[in-house]
Design a protein around this nucleic acid. Structure first.
Length: 544
RNA sequence: GCGGGUGUAGCUCAGUGGUAGAGUGUCACCUUGCCAAGGUGAAUGUCGAGGGUUCGAAUCCCUUCACCCGCUCCA
């Protein structure tokens, strides 16, 4: 245990994820789902404070995106409407979107070193691996590669770099078999890839040519499917025809309703459709508290534009979304905007204006960052795919009256995680402070704070509770307020610190006689004295 | 999915085969009155779950679940 000698707390006291998780549980922000039965991996419940925090986040998003005026890059008001789509959709949706097939990654495990990897990444990883490079060097002049040279490599470099490789584990067998193969093929040159596959194969007759593990050279298992979509059956009969999926993203509900929205409202490109809703992914490894859950909530906008305006809109959305997260409380250096490199772009975004992530430095990712929101130019991939799969094709192009032009609009998609956002707010707000009784306080912005103010009588007598309760009932008509008359005032302040309540209003004896109360500021613990009849306006002004 | 670790009261932990405990928190009352003060009292556990060994299991064995760390995955 380290001694605390300094009288002033370190302003950058480290945040430990375990402590944040403990506070979430202790104060009722987040619980494990179905905990009394031992919980279930990758699922989390929100308690009273957490529900309120997450709702504040979602409401802020919906208000700022759909309801309030937003001025776009062209100086005009940005037009966005909302939808609320089902979680289970016609399964053809997921064929069109590429999730059936594409979402079920083929994975392979190494029999030697037990590492798991995506099958389609193996060759890329191989070409990066040290042992591959070492062989490549050796094989750069194929004529010089003799059994002796290979044996030497197997007993030297190979033993270190690729202990799992057949050539290293069992050089005699592998080499004699290789010689046979070469002879059978008339000693023709084979490319490096094929050559290495031979070196990785011990029993060709039984197993065929092997693909080696990029890490140790060992034998990889047959690729197995890891389907990331949750399956269910729709209707009473459980068979192939009733198979349905829980949506892995909310976006497709927006795309499939694009034509409905165009026909039923008077929106014109550019415009957006927004949705908040649950999505489900059967993640291989749910980890890091709520960061990677199997059931999670997304806040998505699909913003439809003329293709030639993609760059302008992409940049505008990216920058506006970044400033939005800053505004609701992630203002510090823990929030970054990261533009993707070309080679990490999704299949639909290769040729687009770009993709970027808004990332937050969580305690468990530090010094790295974890994704909060992705802003992607998805081009016309989705609308076109649905038009094709539903059989109407080009007939479903959008008609632009103004330009007298038919086209599939391009899409800029700002897609944010509500649970990740809530978690970032929790992590950012968590402020250790050894000088105060609670040892910690949560400095949510007033807009995000689950409780806006606490109202307390200093003592539970002398008419103070009555005054406090009147004020409490008055404030509660508009805001989320707590009233507490039990125990010492310090204890009540401490509890509010942990809940992240920005203001505590206390009725004391002086105040009772002069018609005032003290208002304590959570972050500084300083107090103002304010007249009782002005407190509602004082709170309105600060809480919004 | 693999390897390692952990699991006892809301929380932090003690308890290594023989009656489940402490501190803290929670609640009530008294007292006090501006930052978890003090006093008195109360509630709270299928010892993660299931099975086995034993006269007897929190403790030993097996299985399983959850969490943490590492690998891996993450449209």
């Amino acid at each position: 245990m380290s001694e605390v000698t300094a009288s002033t707390p370190s302003p950058a006291a480290p945040k430990k994820m375990d402590d944040i998780v403990a506070l979430c549980r202790r104060r009722g922000f987040i619980f494990q789902s179905s905990e009394i039965y031992g919980g279930i991996n990758g699922f989390w419940d929100y308690g009273p404070l957490g529900t309120s925090l997450k709702r504040n986040l979602k409401n802020a998003w919906w208000n700022d995106v759909v309801e309030r005026e937003l001025i776009g890059p062209d100086g005009n008001s940005v037009d966005i409407v909302g939808v609320d789509c089902t979680i289970i959709m016609n399964p053809k949706t997921w064929v069109a979107s590429g999730h059936v097939g594409g979402f079920a990654d083929l994975m392979s495990t190494c029999r030697q070193c037990k590492k798991l990897m995506r099958w389609d990444h193996v060759w890329d990883m191989l070409s990066e691996s040290d042992w591959w490079k070492s062989i490549e060097e050796l094989y750069s002049t194929p004529s010089a590669v003799t059994s002796e040279a290979l044996m030497k490599w197997a007993q030297g470099k190979g033993r270190k770099l690729a202990p799992g490789l057949a050539l290293v584990r069992n050089p005699q067998v592998t080499l004699s078999w290789l010689a046979e193969r070469l002879a059978a093929q008339g000693n023709q040159y084979m490319d490096t890839r094929e050559f290495v596959r031979h070196l990785a194969t011990e029993q060709f007759a039984r197993d065929g040519l092997q693909t080696p593990c990029p890490h140790c050279g060992g034998e990889l298992t047959e690729p197995r499917q890891f389907n990331l979509m949750f399956e269910t059956n729709c209707g009473a009969v459980k068979d192939e025809n009733s198979l349905a999926y829980l949506r892995p993203e909310t976006a497709q509900g927006i795309f499939t309703n694009f034509w409905n929205v165009c026909d039923s409202t008077r929106v014109k490109v550019p415009f957006g459709i927004a949705q908040i809703g649950k999505a489900f992914r059967n993640e291989v490894t749910p980890r890091n508290f709520t960061f990677r859950s199997r059931e999670f909530e997304q806040m998505e906008i699909e913003f439809f534009i003329r293709p030639d305006t993609a760059n302008e809109w992409y940049k505008w959305w990216r920058d506006w979304r970044f400033s939005w997260w800053q505004k609701i409380g992630l203002a510090g250096a823990n929030l970054i905007l990261r533009e993707h490199d070309r080679d990490e772009l999704a299949h639909y975004a290769k040729e687009g204006a770009g993709t970027s992530d808004i990332e937050y430095r969580f305690p468990f990712t530090a010094p790295g960052f974890g994704e909060l929101e992705g802003i992607a130019h998805r081009a016309d991939f989705d609308l076109k795919a649905h038009a094709t799969h539903c059989g109407k094709g080009d007939k479903m192009r959008y008609f632009d009256q103004e330009k007298n032009d038919r086209y599939f609009p391009h899409v800029i998609e700002p897609s944010a995680g509500a649970d990740r956002g809530t978690l970032a707010l929790l992590c950012e707000a968590y402020t250790p402070d050894p000088t105060r009784a609670s040892g910690v306080y949560m400095n949510f912005t007033p807009r995000m704070a689950p409780v806006k103010a606490g109202v307390f009588p200093l003592v539970n007598k002398d008419g103070l509770p009555e005054i406090a309760e009147r004020l409490y009932r008055d404030l509660r008509r508009k805001h989320s307020i707590e009233f507490d008359e039990k125990q010492s005032i310090g204890k009540r302040y401490a509890r509010m610190d942990e809940a992240g309540t920005p203001y505590c209003i206390t009725i004391d004896h002086d105040g009772a006689s002069s018609g005032t109360a003290t208002i304590r500021h959570r972050d500084t613990q300083a107090q103002d004295r304010v007249a009782l009849d002005q407190i509602p306006a004082w709170i309105d002004e600060r809480v919004g």
